[in-house]
Design a protein around this nucleic acid. Structure first.
Lengths: 206, 206
DNA sequence: ACAATATGTAACAGATCGGTATCGATACTA
DNA sequence: TAGTATCGATACCGATCTGTTACATATTGT
């Protein structure tokens, strides 16, 4: 294996094991065994286990949000429809056989102290996801994009939490229906003056 | 300390520490030190740590559901209002300074294998809570009590998950507002024929 | 009061934890 | 091709993990 690939391979392996067994239950020895790497090598890339966890979460944070953006933007053009499409993305991730719950919520659950760097990494991820929802809600011209984003986020967290226990994808569809119903009753600002690009105006019936 | 109280005291201590640090991160030595009890004593009451966890979750399950029932039934008489009052109970638990997330979701997050007894204990708790919601939804004469219960449950899980990260009680109020809005649009069956006891009929306008 | 039972103390066991040191082999670079 | 940095393998470290053993002491039911 080329030197430049080792770090990424270690992160991928660690992420898989953290997802499968949790953070405390996954020992360094297991990670290096699964990665096929010597312990010295791991500790040349990461000073401590905590640093490995943080790097892994950082990687996962970017992967997740990029994947959601890509999925959602390819799924719909209208921002309001994109807000709903985030639930389809959620359904896809939950359907994965390897799904065992949100890695960030689990990380926060195993590092409950709010000053713990792992907790803060999880918090940061959730903030960024919320910011994306708010960006979509703003683009969809909802009168209160912040509140809409918080509501969508709450439905996401609920769906994932229930899915973690039931191990079915149904909660994500349920959450989408609830989001549809809630958004349909929401006030929207007037569409902007017709600009240069012809923007599709598929507005939800109220 | 009297012999008959030791088991309960151990469970309380273990629950407090599990909530504070998590399950894997809480060692037996810490539990016995905090409980002021010898290690031999603990192992005469519980054969393994897993058995201690299971007994602790069982205790907490009953405590939680009894507390919710008591709170909700004292808070409102109308079943529909009681469904909403469950969010007030949630808010009270989240406001507790010791709140660090749902112990059952955390337990499932640290024991992700669906055949793990700890996971199954968490699953059982969630099923019983859902059954209570369904009981209330049925009493409130909603046309689809099962679906209503699932929706309420999803809002609960979302609120607790967000509260675990943000460490604020706001998500529980948000979830209650969402529940109010969703329930207001729901079909209700006709009230039953006037029976013996005068039942209050505070029906939500549709 | 007596006998049975449960307790505290403390040492111990074997395994595993995160992390380090040594060293020979291998790969990249000048 | 010589030098340098990283690799894998392995042994090791002290700490901590769950769980056990032995024995003296306290509490309990009869």
């Amino acid at each position: 294996m080329r030197r430049s690939e080792i770090r990424g391979h270690l992160l991928d392996t660690a992420l898989r094991l953290f997802n499968q067994h949790g953070y405390h239950a996954t020992g360094i020895d297991l990670i290096i065994a699964e990665a096929g790497v010597a312990k010295t090598t791991l500790y040349r890339h990461f000073e401590t286990k905590e640093e490995l966890i943080l790097a892994a979460l950082e990687r996962r944070d970017e992967e997740d949000r990029n994947a959601m953006r890509a999925f959602v933007e390819q799924q719909a053009r209208d921002p309001a429809e994109r807000l709903l499409a985030t639930f389809d993305f959620l359904e896809a991730t939950v359907r994965d056989k390897q799904f065992r719950g949100c890695m960030f919520l689990s990380a926060a659950g195993e590092h409950k102290d709010t000053v713990d760097p792992v907790f803060r990494a999880a918090l940061m991820h959730k903030r960024l996801v919320l910011a994306y929802f708010e960006e979509l809600a703003h683009a969809a011209r909802f009168a209160e994009p912040k509140r809409i984003a918080i509501e969508i986020n709450l439905l996401h967290e609920g769906a994932v939490a229930v899915a973690q226990i039931t191990r079915t994808a149904e909660p994500t569809r349920q959450a989408k229906r609830m989001a549809q119903q809630l958004l349909a009753a929401e006030e929207r600002l007037a569409p902007p003056a017709r600009g240069g690009d012809a923007e599709q105006r598929t507005q939800a019936e109220t």
